[in-house]
Simulated assay, not measured.
Amino acid sequence: MADVLVQVEAQPARTGPAPAPSPAPRWRLNGRRRAGGADSRARRIGDWTLIGLVLLVTVVAVLAPALAPHDPVQPIGVPKLPPFGDGGLLGTDQIGRDTFSRVLVGLRTSWLLALVVTGVGLLVGTVVGLVAGMFGGWVDSLLMRITEVFLALPSMLVAVAVAAALGPGLVNTFLAVIVVWWPYYARIIRGEVRGIMARPHVEAARMAGVGPLRVMWRHVLPGVVPTAVVTASLDIGNVVMVLASLSFLGLGQPAPAPELGADTSRGLVEILDAWWIPLVPGLVVMLLSLLSNLAGDAVRNRLAHRR
């Protein structure tokens, strides 16, 4: 019998691309999408809730005189009555005035003044930053050197010095804070404008002969607005703290006008006997600052989502 030679041909090596991995099961993809959608929905609800709380605080501040159950300046009963009793919701202070009414009216002063300071500071800083960034050259150098002089000064000490020189009062407090607050916005807006000016659509508009004012209004300003809004919203809490600090030092409204920082300062001597007198206005300042910072983050998230 002849030998049968069985020849086994070796299979050639695979030279093509590696096979694609098998797709993930549909149930796993759907679960991930549902989880991502739930997180996004929860974040969106949380952001709008914080923004709504800020609007609610603003409405309460505007309507504070009508919402206050008593005159915040006149005594209503026995001094140092504890909260949730005969002294009302938050008790009475060291001379028998309603603490809740004083906190409401003091919140009005601190919150609305913080909004005004932030708005005016943003307006001045935006104008300075726009002009510096748009025109450049010696205009930019001059405006930025002036801005840097203000930034180099210790802002809190300058505000205290200006308020002390002008005397106590809301207008003087406003001027003291606004003097040191606008340079931050000017520097931020100027940097944003310089970045927008280098974009192709702005350069094309300028090469087409569009005037500088039209370029600023149609192309630069819309790109600056989101940054300005986010910066201002994150800054309101800082303004609240600065205003409360000036009031705490006696540089706010003169007594007996209700103000959160001043009421905290005057009530410190009663911290052991009537803890609510200094503690309540101090807690309100802390909550206002915390809420405004969280709402600023929410505004930033919403604007980033729209982009």
Rank of each mutant, 00 (worst) to 15 (best):
L153F: 11
M134A: 13
R190P: 10
V193Y: 00
V285T: 03
R302H: 11
I95F: 04
P65F: 00
D297G: 03
L272M: 15
A38K: 14
V220Y: 01
V284Y: 02
T264F: 06
W276T: 12
L151H: 02
H305V: 11
P72E: 09
V54A: 06
P21V: 07
S245Y: 06
M156V: 12
W181A: 15
L81C: 09
Q74H: 13
L90A: 11
I271V: 14
P168D: 07
A262Y: 00
I178G: 10
S110W: 00
A61F: 00
M144Q: 11
R190K: 08
G129M: 01
I271K: 05
F135R: 15
P19W: 04
L283K: 05
S110E: 10
D140Y: 04
P72F: 03
A13M: 11
R300S: 14
V139D: 11
L279M: 13
F84I: 08
R145P: 01
A295F: 05
A2M: 12
V54T: 12
L283C: 11
A198D: 14
V229H: 04
P226A: 09
V59T: 13
R306K: 11
E270V: 01
H70A: 14
R108M: 11
A244E: 03
T92Q: 05
D140C: 10
V240H: 04
N30M: 14
A262G: 13
P72D: 10
G250F: 04
P72W: 01
G52M: 04
D39Q: 15
L123S: 12
S292K: 01
N30V: 14
F135H: 15
A42Y: 07
R214L: 09
M241Q: 09
L291M: 10
T147E: 04
D93F: 01
A24E: 15
A208L: 07
L234S: 06
G261V: 05
R145H: 08
T231P: 03
P19F: 06
S245Q: 07
E203A: 12
R218I: 09
G91C: 04
D39T: 13
A13R: 12
P212G: 06
L5Y: 10
G133N: 08
G296I: 00
V116F: 12
R14V: 15
A304H: 09
S22F: 11
V117P: 00
V54F: 04
R307G: 15
A257N: 10
G195N: 12
I277H: 00
N172L: 03
I236W: 03
A208S: 14
M197T: 09
P212E: 08
V285D: 02
G136F: 06
P200T: 06
Q253F: 02
V59Y: 02
I236T: 07
L268R: 10
L123E: 08
N172S: 10
T99N: 10
G106Q: 02
A2L: 13
L122C: 10
A132K: 00
A152H: 01
I277D: 00
G125V: 09
A10M: 10
E192A: 12
P278I: 01
L251Q: 04
V210R: 06
A24M: 11
G85K: 06
P154A: 14
